[in-house]
Structure formats: C-alpha cells, structure tokens
Amino acid sequence: MLEAGSGRSPAVGRLRFRDELRDFFSFVRRPRLAPRLPGRRAGDGWWEDWFPTVSVGRLLKWALFLWAINLVFLGPIAVAAAGAGGATHRLNIHNIPWLHALLWAPVVEELVFRYALRRPAPAWWLVPGAVAAMLMGAKWPGILLVTGILLLCWLPYLLNMPFARRDLPWRVRKAYRRGFPWVFHLTSVAFAAVHLYNFNLHQTPLWLLPLLVLPQWLTGLVLGWHRVRLGIGASILLHGIFNGGPLLVVWLVLRMAPELAV
C-alpha cells in the first residue's frame, strides 16, 4: 500500500494550527504522498484513513481560514468576474439544498476527486462510478451507486480479505509518486472546474471562467491536503462544514432579515 497498514509507532502530539498552515503551503509548493501528519493512532491504516484522529474544532479553524480568504479576497474576484461576464448563480436561496451540500456533495466529490490520491489502485473503477453517481445526483439510482462504491471500499477490510487489498505493481507506484504533484494539482483544477455548473454562464468569456471558481480551487487544495496528510474522513468532514457555513448564513438572513435577501 502507499501508506502503512498497521504496526505504526504510538502517535506523537498533534501539530498546532499555524504549524498545519505552514505544512499546507509547503505541501502545495511540493505535493508528496508521505509522511502523514503526526498524531495518528497506531493501528489499522484503513480505519484511520476513514476515521482520522482530528477534532471538529481543528476542522472549524480550517473552514474559518477558507471562509475568510474567500470572503476578503477570492470571493470579490469571483463576483467581479461574474458581473463582467453576465454569469449568475444557480442557487435558489428560498430552497436551500441542505442534503446536497452537507452530505451528498462532500461524499461524492471526495470520492471523485480525492479518494484515489492515496489509494490509486481502485481508481480505474471507483472514479468512473463516482462520476456517474455525481451526474445522477442525490436520487435513488445515484444513492444506491454511491452505497455500492462505499461497500466495495470497506468490505475487503471489514471482512479481512487481504487478497482484495493488493496495490499497484512497484514500478507503477514509483511512476505515480513521481507524477503525484501533477495529479494533485490537476484534480484541484478539475474540482474547481466542475463548480462552473453552479453558474448560468450566458455569454461569459472563456478567460473569465477560472476567476469564477477561484474559491473552489483554493478549497480543493485544502481538501486535498487533508485527504493526503490526514485521511479521506477528514476531507469529507471539512467539505461538509465548509459548505454548511455560507448556507447557514443565508438561512439566518432569510429568517431574521428577509428584506435583505430581496
């Protein structure tokens, strides 16, 4: 496997948030598969991947970091680009998609864009299946497909089936490690590009399109760092928290000052 499965030494202390920020910026400059962040429990690597040792408070700090950067810097750029190109957002503030934002998108998008970053062996079937589910949306066919993908991810470990945990040949793994920086940044760009669907683009010039999704690009970098350095569970949880914050603000505005929504 690309990460140790068991037999880890006992975890050392968790980094401070500013240390994690420093590690994130270093990682973005030079993405790498190892090592994981300190603080992981000793034991099964698969379990720690899905249920990492990370506090909700720490994830909230990362969400606050993203909200602040997007609100002060990247968000205004996106708004200006939308105004210049005539793009409008598809979100209907009177019908907030809570289920999609808090559960569906975090799980499906992390499976599509980030699960295989550390576990590339199942990418050949997992990514196409997750993309199909993403296109189906949160309806019963898509929900059943995602459920099947998660079962296929979990069953080899829950049923102790070592033969189903085989990784890529060593030669392929070496090539993947060399190309990992490209894979990481391309998946972050692809994650941002998918969010162009959130807009009615009208006649927006092509050169303005990247500016519309700058917030999602930064978010993709942070989520990718969490996936690689902490685990897929951390990126899913942060994804849900990040999505929920702005929607909660919109909901509060609608309840407390509906005239502002107009």
Results as ranks from 00 to 15, higher is better:
residue 102 L to R: 07
residue 219 T to Y: 07
residue 207 W to M: 13
residue 100 H to C: 06
residue 255 R to V: 05
residue 22 R to E: 14
residue 106 P to V: 03
residue 96 I to A: 03
residue 185 H to N: 12
residue 182 W to S: 13
residue 98 W to E: 01
residue 127 V to P: 11
residue 161 M to D: 02
residue 236 I to R: 01
residue 172 V to A: 15
residue 257 A to M: 13
residue 48 E to Y: 04
residue 151 L to G: 09
residue 35 P to A: 08
residue 144 L to R: 09
residue 221 L to N: 06
residue 201 L to D: 00
residue 70 N to F: 04
residue 216 Q to A: 10
residue 126 L to G: 08
residue 29 R to A: 15
residue 19 D to G: 15
residue 18 R to E: 15
residue 58 R to E: 12
residue 51 F to P: 05
residue 155 L to R: 13
residue 182 W to P: 04
residue 50 W to H: 15
residue 226 H to E: 11
residue 224 G to A: 05
residue 53 T to K: 10
residue 198 N to K: 06
residue 26 S to R: 15
residue 3 E to V: 10
residue 253 V to F: 00
residue 214 L to P: 00
residue 182 W to F: 15
residue 220 G to T: 07
residue 163 F to W: 13
residue 231 G to S: 07
residue 61 K to W: 08
residue 178 R to V: 14
residue 102 L to W: 13
residue 237 L to E: 09
residue 233 G to H: 07
residue 177 R to G: 07
residue 80 A to E: 08
residue 243 N to R: 04
residue 53 T to V: 13
residue 114 R to E: 07
residue 206 L to M: 10
residue 137 G to V: 06
residue 186 L to D: 07
residue 140 W to I: 14
residue 123 A to N: 06
residue 250 V to K: 02
residue 94 H to S: 11
residue 160 N to V: 12
residue 194 V to L: 14
residue 245 G to D: 01
residue 73 F to Q: 02
residue 56 V to G: 14
residue 40 R to L: 09
residue 165 R to M: 08
residue 182 W to N: 08
residue 191 F to R: 03
residue 231 G to L: 08
residue 151 L to Y: 14
residue 67 W to A: 14
residue 151 L to W: 12
residue 63 A to V: 11
residue 121 A to W: 09
residue 168 L to M: 13
residue 118 R to S: 15
residue 25 F to C: 10
residue 121 A to L: 00
residue 98 W to P: 03
residue 258 P to M: 00
residue 139 K to S: 13
residue 147 T to G: 12
residue 5 G to Q: 15
residue 51 F to C: 13
residue 20 E to M: 11
residue 150 L to T: 03
residue 9 S to H: 13
residue 204 T to Q: 11
residue 108 V to Y: 07
residue 241 I to P: 08
residue 64 L to I: 06
residue 209 L to E: 04
residue 157 Y to V: 07
residue 81 A to I: 04
residue 205 P to Q: 07
residue 72 V to P: 02
residue 98 W to V: 03
residue 64 L to W: 09
residue 47 W to L: 14
residue 78 A to C: 02
residue 5 G to K: 12
residue 176 Y to K: 06
residue 108 V to G: 05
residue 200 N to L: 12
residue 99 L to Q: 11
residue 134 M to L: 15
residue 222 V to R: 09
residue 24 F to E: 12
residue 80 A to W: 11
residue 80 A to G: 10
residue 17 F to S: 08
residue 229 R to V: 04
residue 78 A to S: 15
residue 10 P to N: 11
residue 114 R to S: 04
residue 243 N to M: 05
residue 148 G to P: 01
residue 141 P to W: 05
residue 62 W to C: 01
residue 49 D to N: 15
residue 93 I to A: 05
residue 135 L to V: 14
residue 239 H to R: 05
residue 70 N to W: 03
residue 259 E to R: 11
residue 44 D to M: 01
residue 198 N to H: 08
